[in-house]
Design a protein around this nucleic acid. Structure first.
Lengths: 187, 187
DNA sequence: TGTACATCAGTGAACGCGCGTTCACTGATGTAC
DNA sequence: TGTACATCAGTGAACGCGCGTTCACTGATGTAC
């Protein structure tokens, strides 16, 4: 069979998106090549027509997870005045919805310690992607916004990571609500 | 060779402590049975004289990590008045020392998302161990202390997890310092 | 006191399985002549 | 217009390796008689 010119690109993209989902659900060591290919409607052998190694897929899939959740937030920010955007970000990040669906949520909340153990190039890339959010943070100066970004982003990611450990849904809700209240009243 | 009565207990304990260290350094899927046994001065085969499975070791090693870092904090709290203890905890948790040495630090900062994906019994156990820290938190009522615990503990764990991703030591320091200042001035 | 046997933490080779990677092959379409 | 060949995404079996687990064995000491 011969395919349209963009066929291969689309297939590759589909593999990366499926990997990004599985990664956030199962962790960096979770999904095998075969399982990602199967989820993409393909068989193992074809994998190396698209990627040089599993590592290459991993790096792209982590970044893909970032793009996806960035996109998701950005679209919900359309009608919110610039000065209030940080509040909307907090409400989305600390929602039960986000907490309950790691596979489509923020990769930092789902993978932070595993990314910290990854190789330098991946850490560097992710560190860069995170910083995109500085501009939405509250504060009059760039330095202030960076400090608030560090505080708000860390606090939110920690809250969601830990909420996901808790076995009692009520505890989970209380944790998320506590952090939401705290952050919304702190800046 | 015949050993003293406590020999086996001590050996088992040594294995668990080595596993606890390796786990925090390499992640839940990191260390193999052979590597933990080697670090303990033993060979693979003997492992099953002490544990029914690798899973059993994992569960104990995570809990062990908790005991160790609890012990470490508690000892540094000896001469601090009860009302100021939460501040001392924050200073320890957000220190460069803690950030730079995951292998002997808080298991939540090193493993949160992986624990969240672990089986129910482990999550339950860890959730229980975390709550031991509620009593040290600021606040006049139990409800208040629990809310502050959620906020402070999540914020600290998130900060350390994310700081460990950052490749620039200066960024790392600024993140930790920002969170330290924020928390110390918030309660 | 001496001999035969039991005990048990630890050894290290072997087994089985899953996983990343390789490879010869397929089959539909495009191209050369 | 027809035939031979090239292309290339995808297939699925096979390979090699690491890892969890099993197992027969070791060797020092305790116990029975």
């Amino acid at each position: 069979m011969r395919y349209e010119p963009e066929h291969k690109t689309r297939t590759r993209d589909r593999i990366v998106r499926n990997a990004a989902r599985k990664l956030r659900a199962e962790g960096l060591g979770g999904p095998g090549v075969a399982s990602v290919m199967k989820a993409s409607g393909l068989t193992v052998g074809g994998f190396y027509k698209h990627f040089r190694s599993k590592d290459e897929l991993l790096a792209e899939a982590i970044a893909q997870g970032f793009s996806e959740s960035s996109e998701k937030i950005r679209s919900s920010l359309q009608n919110v005045p610039h000065a209030d955007r940080w509040k909307e970000i907090i409400r989305w990040y600390l929602s039960a919805e986000h907490c309950d669906h790691p596979e489509v949520g923020c990769p930092v909340a789902a993978l932070a310690p595993e990314i910290a153990r990854a190789k330098f190039s991946i850490r560097k890339r992710i560190a860069g992607l995170m910083k995109e959010w500085v501009e939405f943070m509250p504060g009059p100066t760039a330095g202030e916004r960076e400090r608030n970004f560090f505080v708000i982003f860390s606090a939110m990611a920690g809250a969601v990571s830990i909420a996901r450990i808790l076995t009692e849904p009520a505890d989970r809700q209380r944790l998320l609500a506590s952090m939401r209240d705290h952050l919304l009243h702190s800046f």
